[in-house]
Design a binder for these strands. Structure first.
Lengths: 117, 117
DNA sequence: CCAAGAGATCGACAACCGTCGATGCCTGCC
DNA sequence: GGCAGGCATCGACGGTTGTCGATCTCTTGG
């Protein structure tokens, strides 16, 4: 260690090793979860489902989102694959609902209180 | 309303309107925040900074991430632009630290207790 | 003022993503 | 069984992203 003119402590050898005990799988899974939420349309879908206590079908979501039906189906599939939504077939209609536990788990990843400081 | 053979309640007119009182700016801003976290490398960076109480410089992060220096700089810039990291120049070194408030705000977006159910 | 070195920026390239129209599948009804 | 309609899948296309090597900038030490 030495001290520079401004009194700031600067390590003599700046590049000390930095550990990274998250596995590659961990980071990829976490990134995949956030990737599902990294689109304005999918944020809107999750927000609408969070606001309504009942599931919603594609024919309700499509006009509200002002997108083509294949595009809405595409986003819904992404959210289901990420584990954030659940799909339920009722007759001809496909109803989607929010998995609130999944959203809580996503929030807990960002909880700094779990990390030793 | 009518009831189908399995006793499941199905609205006669399935497609009731679905409201969406988030503005386009809201959803884009939220998506941008998650987009910053939607990459394994950036998850690793945030995780490493969350684990260490001190800021880290690029020359510490680069070998730990096993990526080229321009790539690491690129990811750091993305995280700063998202408001998740802060940059501080100390001599020749650039130190990055986590904005823990920003991470808390990100987590609060996922908090369902704020949403009327 | 010059040389050294840390880090940012640039340009390029491949991979990925959001969007659409067209089409296929599957369920309920006649 | 055949038709209608809700939804998923396909193929295509433009825009974005992650990565790198090369280069530029800026700070420090001599």
């Amino acid at each position: 260690m030495n001290v520079d003119l401004s009194g700031m402590v600067i390590p003599a050898d700046c590049c000390r090793p930095l550990d990274d005990d998250l596995t590659s799988d961990d980071t990829k899974a976490t990134a995949a979860l956030f990737k599902a939420l990294a689109d304005p349309t999918r944020v809107r879908i999750v927000s609408m489902l969070a606001r309504s206590s009942e599931p919603a079908c594609v024919c309700e979501l499509t006009p509200a989102l002002d997108l083509s039906q294949p595009t809405v189906s595409h986003h819904l599939k992404k959210l289901v694959q990420a584990g954030l939504l659940e799909r339920e077939q009722r007759g001809v209609w496909a109803y989607y609902s929010l998995d609130r536990g999944a959203l809580e788990r996503a929030a807990s990843v960002l909880d700094l209180k779990k990390v030793a400081v």
